[in-house]
Nucleic acid binder design. Structure first.
Length: 424
DNA sequence: TCTGGGGTCCTAGGACCC
DNA sequence: TCTGGGGTCCTAGGACCC
């Protein structure tokens, strides 16, 4: 059997751990630039607020109703997530961390009465971390998701719901809207509704061939899982990322090339840091820039460009230089750019890399040591960006909430890639 | 005035090869 | 008039997730 643990209103619950006065009050957590609502407390949901809503559209209403709106503190959420996951790890033989606030658990035969154990998991996580969670237990991941939804929705379950036999599976699917099924998004939901399929039970009762034809193999997998056949396996060890990206919307439009370049170099540095964390090297990256798509009265432009690296690298300076090259190819003056991104699109492991004929191995070893030192310093200093390239000194006012949050003043610009590194 | 960020997987269609 | 057939690889775009 498989369990799904889902933290309730995770970002809001994290804030409440440190500010108990938020308990019982409507709270929302906002995205970068305080743009959109990304998490809500039950009280805020009850007022009709929804995830994804641009905050400026509801601000007046929210303020008049005493809603507490918070800018996201992602470092805090990451730390609390680690704590939740380690509590879970101590309770089960195997698990898969699925997202910052969700994990799949694996139960073997010896686990005993799972219904009761689910409630024990919920109580234990709450006791050790302060985070309320919902636990769903069933024979497949998709059914565990369905079960967790019931555990979250109805307090009578005391935090855990199990779909243990065919009768309860059937009943649960009848009570689940097709749009609430994991793997059925907006498009497929609309498609199914046109076919008069509105509940998970109706979907599960469709002909398999028909599902395959209309919704491809992905839809078919969902169908099989709802019918109790496990086909999405449990991944115990997280796979290396196949792409790594860093992007932000800016707090105002950027027209100037140099300013845009500084932002792109900032994103390149963040992506390079993630790359080093998973011990990979970039072989190719892509830079994207675009104007504000919500301001259609202004001239619109968006473009992407790829750049191959001569030698695979995780060096911030090399990656920033490559990103700058790509940016130069697509930048057009006269447009107000609102967003940019750097994505590492192709990478390889650190060992067994084929270097080009002209690669100076000694130099690249030195550069790698330099990056290790920069990472070590940045990891120790609050904010994580005490040391950065001079080309990446984007003001915090432009990119307010970095993933490595709360960059403090006092940053030192010591590395100038345009002049190269001084020996020793 | 103000509209998030970071991923994965699948498919169709073009390029290319024999 | 009439213009092969089949396979692989790559990419862009769509759909989904949190």
């Amino acid at each position: 059997m498989i369990g799904l643990v889902d933290c309730n209103n995770f970002f809001v619950s994290c804030e409440r751990v440190f500010s108990p006065s938020l308990e019982g009050r409507p709270v929302v957590v906002l995205s970068n630039n305080d743009g959109c609502i990304v998490a809500l407390s039950n009280e805020a949901k009850a007022m009709g607020l929804t995830r994804g809503t641009p905050y400026f559209k509801v601000r007046a209403m929210a303020e008049s109703h005493g809603v507490v709106a918070l800018s996201g503190n992602h470092r805090l959420y990451g730390d609390i997530s680690d704590r939740v996951m380690s509590v879970l790890r101590s309770l089960v033989p195997a698990m898969e961390i699925y997202s910052i606030d969700e994990a799949f658990l694996f139960f073997d035969q010896s686990t005993g009465c799972l219904d009761e154990f689910g409630r024990y998991i919920s109580d234990t996580v709450k006791r050790y971390t302060g985070i309320p969670v919902s636990v769903g237990i069933a024979s497949t991941k998709t059914l565990a998701k369905v079960a967790a939804r019931f555990a979250k929705k109805y307090s009578g379950y005391h935090g855990a719901c199990m779909i243990g036999d065919d009768a309860s599976r059937q009943r649960a699917l009848e009570l689940t809207g097709i749009g609430d099924v994991w793997g059925i998004g907006r498009r497929q939901c609309a498609h199914l509704q046109r076919m008069n399929v509105t509940t998970a039970a109706q979907f599960a009762a469709m002909e398999r061939d028909m599902v395959r034809r209309h919704f491809t193999v992905t839809g078919e997998k969902t169908w099989r899982e709802l019918n109790g056949e496990p086909c999405i396996e449990l991944h115990q060890t997280p796979a290396d990322r196949k792409s790594i990206s860093s992007s932000r919307s800016f707090s105002r439009d950027i027209y100037d090339f140099d300013e845009l370049r500084e932002a792109v170099c900032t994103f390149a540095a963040i992506a390079a840091r993630k790359l080093r964390r998973q011990q990979s090297l970039a072989m190719e990256l892509q830079v994207m820039i675009r104007t504000n798509r919500f301001h259609q009265q202004l001239p619109q432009y968006s473009a992407e460009s790829r750049e191959k690296l001569a030698d695979a690298s995780a060096d911030t300076m090399i990656i920033s230089a490559a990103a700058t090259n790509a940016l130069k190819r697509i930048y057009k003056p006269g447009y107000g750019y609102k967003k940019a991104s750097v994505t590492i699109t192709r990478m390889t492991g650190r060992d067994g890399v084929q270097q080009s004929l002209f690669c100076d191995m000694r130099d690249s070893a030195r550069r790698q040591r330099l990056m290790d030192v920069v990472d070590e310093i940045n990891d120790q200093i609050a904010g994580g960006a005490a040391l950065r390239l001079a080309s990446a000194r984007t003001p915090n006012s432009l990119i307010p909430h970095r993933t490595v949050a709360d960059v403090k003043s006092g940053s030192v610009d010591i590395l100038r890639p345009d002049r190269g590194l001084k020996r020793d």
